[in-house]
Design a protein around this nucleic acid. Sequence first.
DNA 1: TAGATTGTTAATCGATTAACAATC
DNA 2: TAGATTGTTAATCGATTAACAATC
Lengths: 226, 226
Amino acid sequence: MQEKEISLAVIKRLPRYYRYLGELLENDVVRISSKELSERMKVTASQIRQDLNNFGGFGQQGYGYNVEYLYTEIGKILGLDRKYNIIIIGAGNLGQALSNYTDFERRGFYVTGIFDTNPRLEGISIRGIEIQMIENLEKFVKNNPVHIAVLTLPRLKAPQVAKEVVGLGIKAIWNFAPVDLNLPPDVIVENVHLAESLMRLSYDLKASEDNTKPFEKEADNKNKGN
Amino acid sequence: MQEKEISLAVIKRLPRYYRYLGELLENDVVRISSKELSERMKVTASQIRQDLNNFGGFGQQGYGYNVEYLYTEIGKILGLDRKYNIIIIGAGNLGQALSNYTDFERRGFYVTGIFDTNPRLEGISIRGIEIQMIENLEKFVKNNPVHIAVLTLPRLKAPQVAKEVVGLGIKAIWNFAPVDLNLPPDVIVENVHLAESLMRLSYDLKASEDNTKPFEKEADNKNKGN
DNA sequence: TAGATTGTTAATCGATTAACAATC
DNA sequence: TAGATTGTTAATCGATTAACAATC
């Protein structure tokens, strides 16, 4: 259906547009121009128009964009016009936190199963969903449609479990383990590498402290990009 | 100290290099060429050499790179050769999960305080650190050096708390709230927007399902980039 | 020394920004 | 209609890749 390949850079920006439009909608803003949105989001108006036009003309000359319409359309592009069943594998702190995160349901992501290897967690209930032993995974997936598997388990276990999950026919993995999963090309993997995010923060912090050191000020006081 | 501005794209790749080098080190690999590393990481050897040369010549012609040396040097670049005290503001599921995350300590990030507004959480201990009421924040920061504040609190509260935190002199924020914090330019903000990550996953999943639909196969069966 | 592989310059590719005609 | 703002083409900018001389 898509005419030409959409660049990854564009796709990565879509959820942020969606978030801003959602906020505008909350504030009962009916229409917005690319210029005004660009000022709020701190990007260029040109980029907004280019990005949106990858998917079609959602605006109107002389008027701008209807907030509600654009919000809905971007939602459709992002695949938020349907429901997803997700299972969480690894019921440690992070897995439990994500299981408890009701916000995802508002967007159509429903946790339907939670799995772990630790027998002490068996049967513990999170928002009405009992933690199961991972041995039950195969049976569960065969009886319940699962669209996304969330991996919140130790680095050394993740690749093997990912393989099993893919073997059961699951096509999308949200990976929180600090490792790259090498899976067949038809499997979608989205990584959340918290440690890497924290390292970028410490890099920036270090760089800004270096810039503040009095004797180096003159040498490199150009502004840092965001 | 830095000669020219390092591009954001390069900085974002550094933690991944660091992770791969750490794995090689674990496996007692002593040296590696850009070519071999490029095959493991699925990037070009050229990119690796370009990236590293932003920071200096870490390799040796005809030999490659010494894994341990390169690992250490990238660690220094990322600011991992020192310790950071971090406080967590918002002791909900995610805040507690991060507080429990011992992995960060290995990299030098120490949780020294946890804060919330919910009186029912007051005094609950996580790894020996008692959850405090947010009213104590100012006093705490004045008596204890804090390098990084982690915001794991609701979207609507985050901007105000961020402002307060910055007012207390904290220069770096790891923001998990789904909102952009508009803070002075000398404050470092690293965002982790989980909902946006999940939306990218659903976009990719949708796109791959569209590609699999039999009648559209011919129209767009080019390979999707990663 | 010969072979390997870096560091670095030059060429290519892709993404962002600017500009403006089309049009509401 | 006049003014505003999009959709889209063209120009610019920056990042990636290729190539190879330097050198271990």
